[in-house]
Design a protein around this nucleic acid. Structure first.
Lengths: 110, 110
DNA sequence: TTAATCTACAACCATATGGTTGTAGATGAT
DNA sequence: ATCATCTACAACCATATGGTTGTAGATTAA
């Protein structure tokens, strides 16, 4: 799951597909890479169950599976709740504004 | 970020560290692998800014960076909001109980 | 001082990964 | 029927990855 989302192209594919159904070829036209490369990315997402494929004639329709996205969110929410319970044990909600462990600055995304 | 979380050991390390400070060696004792392997995992997490390291004598204290976790959550929340706005465009909130695109069952986690 | 503990770093290895080009079958349009 | 479009699959490649063992320096404990 997280691995599938670790690639920027794949995240973009998920985003596209969440906005509406796509075919593999329409997705392929979006990225500066070979069709086969996009196919591979879709295969990774499919294996992670973030998308499903449905053949319609000569085309494969790619659909999102929001439940799988939510599964990933659940893991992160769990991390957040661990953090919050620890903060409460500290009885120190000030640390929350620092958004990191006390005394440490926040970092940037991936 | 997502890549760093893609490995089960690394997720577990994040969880440990969120619960409280750890040293690299205390983390290493938790997993059935060499110290160097755990070190590598910590290095990946550090590079993704999910943790920071602070030397204290001969030890390295490992601390969580919840802000980075939240950055990942933001991406997933964005996906969720895309999905929701599309559902609203459908004017069909029934689809939400299916938890996937209409006509498709939900999948399992990673 | 010696021994124990902790860590950094390097080299190695089998496997995986994000791309490539190539081949070929199926479907759809003309 | 031919041509265009779409897709599946294979092989390849340079690089990355999750582990290994080995070497060695720094800190701490006895």
């Amino acid at each position: 799951m997280f691995h599938a989302l670790a690639d920027a192209t794949r995240r973009d594919i998920v985003e596209c597909v969440l906005l509406g159904k796509s075919t593999v070829s329409s997705l392929a036209r979006r990225y500066p890479m070979s069709f086969a490369a996009v196919q591979k990315h879709v295969a990774v997402l499919e294996r992670a169950e973030l998308v499903t494929k449905e053949r319609r004639g000569r085309e494969q329709i790619v659909r999102a599976n929001i439940a799988a996205v939510r599964d990933a969110s659940t893991v992160l929410d769990h991390f957040e709740s661990l953090w919050r319970s620890r903060m409460e044990r500290f009885g120190d909600l000030l640390a929350e504004t620092v958004a990191s462990e006390p005394g440490h600055p926040r970092g940037a995304a991936e």
